[in-house]
Each structure stands twice: as structure tokens, then as C-alpha cells.
Design a protein around this nucleic acid. Structure first.
Lengths: 243, 243
DNA sequence: CAGTGGTCTAGACCACGAA
DNA sequence: TCGTGGTCTAGACCACTGT
């Protein structure tokens, strides 16, 4: 009943932790593993997908399945609130940003609670570590709220500049909500991430003190090479019924 | 280049959104879909996995692939800070809780920063909606910090009682860190969730004002039927470099 | 029992990367 | 060019569900 590919994944995981396979080196090819475990290649591939989703293996097309450390994943932290020891471990990434004006699609209109077609400033961030993409971030600010201008210089991985730009324009964020879900990558994401591993999808909205949504963001993180961290400080005084 | 299973997934998604397939009704069987799209069954299955991970389809062994609404997913909110409209939408779940004493394994010892073998009070929560499990939560409190006692009555889905018990014992949580990652389910989780969909894995630690870890938790949420939401309130005064 | 999805096989052919 | 992983086929057999 316990699928055989799980036994294989467990065995490979154990061998990786025993350093039988070296970090940043490829495992034996899928064909060889199939022979060793006396199963077909697709079965081996499913076992490797399990390890990939754990961040222990990175599949590189045409090269092999490389042993990785899950601790070296990139870290997304809410609204630039850098967090604890993990943040320090997150390796420095190369980030590129583009700014343009778009009009709200159905999805964006629901996220930002603006009418369909409303003008938005879009900030598109791509974070890269070495040759591997660690995150796609699209931030949106309704131009009704404020008309921000690019370009963004020296961008941070998750678009913290937008918050600074908002503050400079006199728009202050009071509260941010991050929704995190897991899904499989879209065609585009699969191409960019070069991976079919599950994606951490983050939907974020920031509101000002009047409750108006002043910023929204859609992030896609490759689940095998990134994670999300949130810090909540408990107030000393027990407080409010939220409303 | 764009895998054909993605086209099939896109087509099915569109038909679902056009209400060509009814919510809570099964799609045509995988065999029939394979004939309709002129592909083999495994290809159809991959397309359905995409929709499953989006929460649009629930696969039920021996019954069929049922159309679902992603909005009806259960919501995990950090440390019981119920959140916005989404929380209201999260349907009420049946929750069972067990309390026992365990000694720290390697993983728990790293999470809680206690020595291996240290005694811990474990709270195990299982949340169910109808017949579908929506979350597994294991909370740990080092007995060195305080020796809590069960049983827990009328448990909440994510173990908020533990926080209350801590407070009653004079232990106050100052800060909570949630790490969210995506992985494929373990053998056990696959059995409990009855699904091979990606799991949202949450590692949580709570510290008191002295920085000591007073509680830790490991949560597994079925990615196709649950999501995580975090709310961050921005302080009015721009503050500290965290360190 | 019949119909469904779950796992697995033993191939085929294509796309990618390095030499 | 050759070895790698990515996609897909056309089955087989098992497990689960409802009748």
C-alpha cells in the first residue's frame, strides 16, 4: 500500500544525509537508478520529485539530478520585515525590476478591489541566484491612490522599494495580509523556473489606515528553492476585536 | 514545448469556470477524458493534478474527480489571529485533539532548541470538514518551560488553546515565527489526506520576552484544500533595525 | 459486481547541455 | 555527438466505492 516510490525516496534521502552523495554533485542518472532499484524510469522520476519538492534535489534538464541543501532556499519575508537567523542565511540575489502601466484584469480587480480596467502601476521583479530563478514578484499600485514612477534602482528581491515610494508619496501602509497557497507552475512559470516543482503562490494586499487597498502583489516562489517566513509580534496589552 | 497536459488543464479550467461542469459533481472519468482529448490516461491524470493543486478538483479514489471551489479552502492563520473576510469564509471544522508526553527527536530538538531527548508535551490536532481532513497540527511545549496538562476540550483547528494554557501558566508569547514551505506528502500524510497533492508545511516557533522558545509546532495542510494567511500590522512609528 | 482512480511497466521520441 | 532529463503511449494490475 505504501507506494514503492516512497521507499525509494526514503532510501535516497537517507543516502544523501549520510553524505553518500555529495552536495552540488549529480545523483546517478535516472536510468541507472531505475536499474539499481529494479523499477521503470517513471517510478524513479516520481521518487525524485518527492526529494525535489523537499529542496534536497534540483533537477537540471540535460545535466542530472543535483544534491542540494534545503537550508539554502531563498526566503520571502512579509513586507520586508527581515526575519531572524533565516534571513541572514538567505543568500544575496541578483534582482531586476521593471515598471509599467497596466489596466486591471479580472484577477487584479478582485485582488485590489478596483474596477476592471482601472489603471495600475505594475512593478515586476525577478530574483536570481546564480543561474536559478528564486522568485517572481508583481506589485501593483492603483494610480487612483498615487501615480508612482520608475525606474527602481538597486531593487530588493520582494519589492520593498514600492513601500518606500508609497511612504514618500504620503501613503502609509497600516496592515498587510499575505495569503500563501501551493499550486503547480503555469506554463510560463515552468519555463522561468525550469522546474515542474510545486510553486508557493503568495497573494498580498496592503491597506492604509482608512482601510483602502494601496498595494497588492502576486508572488510565485519555486517551492523547491524558496520558502516564506512570517513574524508576528504579540502586543503586550491584549487588544481589540478586529474590525 | 508547452506540455500538452497544460493545454488540457487550461481547457478543463475554462469549462469549469463556464459552469459546463457543476460544482461538487464529478468530471467525466479519466478514461473518457483520455478518449475525448485523444491522449493516454496518464496524460489526463497530470492535467487533473494541476487542477487539483489549484483547489479546483478533488480526486476521490473509486469515485471520481469532483469539481470544487478554491475559495472554500480551509484557512490557517498565524497564532489564532483570525484574519479578515477569508476567515469568515473558512467553514467550521470538526477538530480532535490528543495530548501526550514525548521526548525530542533530532528534528524537534532543532526546532525548539532543546537537547535531544528532552521531555515535551505534544498536542496533536486533526481538523476535519465533512469527510476530508484539512489539517494536521503537532504542537510542542518543552516541559522545562512549563508542564501543561490535557485533555483539551472544544479544540480550535490550529491549537490556539496551547497559547491560552501557556498564558494561564504565566508564560507569555512575545513573538511567533511561521516558516511556510511546499513539499509532497509523506506516506502517512498521503494516507490521512487521501491525496498526493502538494502539502503546505508550516514550522512555527513562539518565543517569550526573554527570547526563549516556549512553543513550537509542525503543521501539514493539504495544499488542494487549505491555505495560510498572515496579517502584519505596521507600527505607526517607523522603527528599529531588527537584530 | 462494475466503474472509478492509484500505481507501475517498458518502451518511444524530443529537448537540453557539455564536450 | 552522446548522455541527460521531459513528455507521452498503451497497456497491466490493484484498491476503493457504491450497488
Amino acid at each position: 500500500m505504501a507506494a514503492y516510490y516512497h521507499s525509494i525516496a526514503d532510501d535516497l534521502r537517507r543516502r544523501i544525509e549520510c553524505a553518500e552523495y555529495v552536495v552540488d554533485e549529480p545523483l546517478p542518472s535516472e536510468a541507472k537508478l531505475a536499474i539499481r532499484y529494479r523499477v521503470s524510469v517513471p517510478t524513479i522520476r516520481i521518487a525524485l520529485e518527492v526529494l525535489q519538492a523537499e529542496g534536497r534535489v534540483e533537477k537540471l534538464h540535460g545535466r542530472g539530478n543535483f544534491v542540494r541543501r534545503p537550508e539554502e532556499r531563498a526566503v520571502y519575508g512579509s513586507a520586508g520585515h527581515a526575519v531572524g537567523r533565516r534571513a541572514a542565511e538567505s543568500p544575496p540575489m541578483q534582482v531586476s525590476a521593471e515598471v509599467r502601466t497596466v489596466s486591471a484584469t479580472d484577477g487584479l480587480s478582485a485582488l485590489l478591489q478596483v474596477r476592471r480596467g482601472a489603471l495600475l502601476t505594475e512593478f515586476e521583479y525577478v530574483s536570481v541566484l546564480g543561474t536559478s530563478v528564486r522568485g517572481l514578484a508583481r506589485l501593483y499600485v492603483p494610480q487612483r491612490v498615487v501615480k508612482l514612477k520608475g525606474p527602481v534602482v538597486d531593487p530588493s528581491p520582494w519589492g520593498d522599494e514600492v513601500r518606500s515610494l508609497l511612504a514618500e508619496a504620503g501613503v502609509h501602509v497600516a496592515s498587510t495580509v499575505d495569503r500563501v497557497a501551493s499550486r503547480l507552475p503555469s506554463t510560463e512559470e515552468r519555463k522561468v523556473f525550469r522546474s515542474a516543482a510545486p510553486v508557493l503562490a503568495v497573494e498580498r494586499t496592503s491597506t492604509d489606515f482608512s482601510g483602502q487597498i494601496v498595494e497588492g502583489a502576486l508572488l510565485a516562489l519555486p517551492g523547491d528553492r524558496a520558502e516564506a517566513v512570517f513574524t508576528t509580534r504579540t502586543h503586550v496589552e491584549p487588544m481589540e476585536a478586529v474590525g
